[in-house]
Computed example of a mutant assay.
Amino acid sequence: MRAFICTKYGNADRLTLQEIAKPSPKPNEILIKVKAVSVNSWDWDIMKGAPIIRMIGPFSPPYKILGADLSGTVEAVGTEVTNFEVGDEVFGDVSDSGWGGFAEFVCGKAEDFCKKPAELTFEQAACIPQAGMLGYQGVRTFGKVKPGDKVLINGAGGGAGMFACQVAKLDGAEVTGVDSAAKQDTMRSFGADHVYDYKQTDYTKLDQKFDVIIDAVAHKWPSTYRRVLSPTGTFVMMGGKMRAIIGAFMASRKNADEVQKFQILMWSVNHKDLLDLAQLVIDKKIKIHVGKIFPFEQTPEALQHVGDQNAHGKVVIKVS
């Protein structure tokens, strides 16, 4: 099979298309013929060697084949798998199975996959497991957004932000989106009531308070965010720099003693949440905006497009 291999940290030109052996599923895994895989910021962070990644791979990427958010058809099942059969259309996440989605075939734990509803395209389904769960769980599980809440989403024009904006609006919130100037119309299409260009406006200096802040690119110390949180507000870190992650972790340890709460969002592949979000898409209550679809051979270009922060919504690679 063909796969894009990454053995050294760097830009997307480090990825090389190689012919390698097709993997075989472990007893608890399924082998998937990949139809579509979406690109996430984690793929870029692993390839570039972000500080948090170098903690587990100090000299080279810990995963040689990137890509985790995918859909496809079951090619083979492990001996312990009872809920899938060869030919089933599935979608899920292989980040807990060693990654490997930028390939024609990949093995993943059966427990991390659901059967794809027939109403969803493979491209739509590939957008849901990571980015969708980050946005969905960021709003509902971690942010606990309520009708009337004022919610700010930093990075609202990207993949996870797309879901977070729409779920927050669906749950009755007033949504403020922050991203680049080029994504202002995109944020509005996701339902944002107010939009800001992060280069022109530092949202931590706005003269208003937010009940929930969901930040995909946090880089400041918690005290900076506290000034724009309501007295009982919640800050949800969806992604960010190491300094901000450390600060949010330290602040979260004091949640029991503080009225304002800090949460670090670690999404989980939850079957109920996956299927609930998929149903919202089917019911046209949530729209998946695929900004660009790349053919498999242009996987490096797709990854660079996301790394350059040019993605509006999701970027998808059509594998087969």
Rank of each mutant, 00 (worst) to 15 (best):
L275E: 12
F142Q: 10
V259Q: 12
K35G: 09
E123P: 02
D149Q: 07
V319E: 03
G57P: 05
K109P: 00
R243D: 14
L15H: 06
V306N: 13
P51H: 07
V315G: 00
N255A: 07
G158H: 06
V139W: 09
I20D: 04
D283P: 12
A12W: 12
Q184L: 14
Y196A: 00
G240N: 09
V34W: 10
L17H: 06
G191T: 02
E258T: 15
L275G: 06
Q166F: 06
V94C: 14
E297S: 15
G132I: 04
A168T: 04
K272N: 12
V175S: 09
V139E: 10
V178F: 01
V175N: 04
V315D: 03
G57M: 05
I288S: 09
G233Y: 11
V90K: 01
E119Q: 15
L206R: 00
F91W: 01
V37Y: 06
R14C: 15
G313D: 09
E75M: 03
T204A: 04
E111M: 08
M237Q: 13
D185S: 11
G191H: 01
N83V: 01
G10Q: 10
W221A: 08
I213F: 02
V178C: 12
T232S: 13
L66E: 10
Y196I: 04
G161T: 05
K199I: 00
W42Q: 12
G10Y: 12
K314T: 10
E85T: 13
L134W: 00
T176S: 09
P222F: 10
K199C: 01
K254C: 06
G247I: 14
M242R: 09
I286A: 11
K109E: 07
A278P: 07
D257I: 12
M187T: 02
Q304P: 01
N40K: 01
T121W: 05
F190S: 05
G78W: 02
T73C: 07
K292C: 11
S38V: 08
R14K: 15
A126Y: 11
W99G: 00
M242Y: 11
V195G: 06
I214S: 01
I286G: 07
Q260G: 08
M47V: 02
V139S: 03
T82Y: 00
H289G: 02
G138C: 11
E258D: 15
V81G: 07
N11T: 15
D171E: 14
A12K: 09
A216C: 11
K8Y: 05
Q208M: 10
V217P: 02
S71L: 09
Q263Y: 10
D185V: 00
A118R: 07
Y136F: 15
